[in-house]
Design a protein around this nucleic acid. Structure first.
Lengths: 201, 201
DNA sequence: GCGATGTAGGCAATTTATTGCCTATAATCG
DNA sequence: CGATTATAGGCAATAAATTGCCTACATCGC
């Protein structure tokens, strides 16, 4: 679908999550008309599956979902892809929810109802300007108040470092070995353990 | 006094901005009792003056102020000190306000009324993470040129997480154990390995 | 003083991670 | 085609981290 190998004419691929089927359908249609690839899901579980199945460039999700709250969903997304930009929208959001979402690296927070056109603009600007140092920094440095095992945090951090490094060197393992000053066998083991997928260069 | 190390001796300096004099006074008193230096201001203009006059380590401000809104204030702060951590609090904040505040680099957003104790914990954790943030940033996020071993990065990150957590819970080991979901012996070992000093509570 | 609480650390068993050696599999080049 | 390069992974030795058990020490309230 969204083949990452050809940067020039690659379509931006959006994972759109909303439990309201009408809104979901309408937005998806509008985005597709505007030359985006759209993967839809009407709940968090499905969205995570889709995410595992197919790499996307940005996640746009409702904060309120029937099967799982958006913050928890964002955490799961972060475990799979620590770098993926997430845009939230919601009709009723509390202050801690918004703050937590932003800390989890949300790039924006829209209020319902979301204008399709506004959404499109947001997606375009985000996918264009993503990879701001601040976003990465926040994500890596954030310490939340909640109970998150140190083990888990360290794993997430390690994954993030390795993935960033991979991205930076276009998936060239030998460069990562050198940059991170690490034994090849160790890197292999870590990537397996952390579930880092090797995308073909 | 004499039982503190050099690093611990340096008091954290807080710029506290609130137009409610009673709350301002009460919070300032509480923070001072807990060994922080507090500079107060009851409006944005004065706060900016204070900021220019005297370097502070963290700004804690109301979002609503008589002479200027908090977002505009944060912009002015950013012009003077682009990296200074800002914590907002407010009773009525809109979604765009919170999002904008977080984008301007707010490190947190508290809801009024703010518990003095909660505020203290927040300030300590923020100033701690900020202190190590620069070092960590160099090691962890400056992926580009230098070869920084993954090992070293992970160590720095672990140290940073533990230290922040310690500060956030005012040095109470048992809380850290719970928050980080870690065995006591393991934490002890890690702290020794990473050279984390236990400052007396 | 005495017991309760919170903490540190020695020791040793166990688990987990690292890594060298060797082989295998693609892909690419000449 | 064969040689070269880049990579993955099995196996096993070794190194390091985790953690339970036990002891010790300080502090605090009674």
């Amino acid at each position: 679908m969204s083949n990452h190998s050809d940067a020039a004419n690659k379509k931006v691929c959006v994972l759109l999550v909303d439990d309201d089927h009408d809104v979901l359908g309408a937005n998806a249609r509008y985005l597709r008309l505007n030359d985006l690839t759209v993967v839809v899901a009407d709940q968090a579980g499905t969205a995570i599956e889709r995410l595992r199945a197919d790499p996307v460039d940005i996640v746009v999700t409702d904060l309120r979902m029937p099967d799982c709250d958006g913050i928890e969903f964002a955490r799961q997304v972060r475990e799979i892809t620590p770098l993926l930009p997430i845009v939230f929208f919601s009709g009723f959001a509390t202050v801690p929810e918004i703050v937590e979402a932003m800390k989890l690296g949300a790039v924006d927070f829209l209020e319902k109802p979301v204008e399709p056109d506004h959404l499109l603009g947001k997606i375009r600007s985000v996918s264009a300007s993503f990879r701001s140092a601040i976003a990465l920094q926040r994500q890596a440095l954030d310490i939340s108040d909640t109970t998150v095992p140190l083990r888990k945090r360290v794993r997430a951090y390690e994954k993030y470092v390795i993935e960033s490094c991979l991205l930076q060197h276009n998936g060239r393992i030998s460069c990562v070995l050198e940059t991170l000053d690490i034994n090849r066998r160790t890197l292999n083991e870590k990537m397996n353990r952390l579930g880092i997928v090797r995308n073909p260069v």
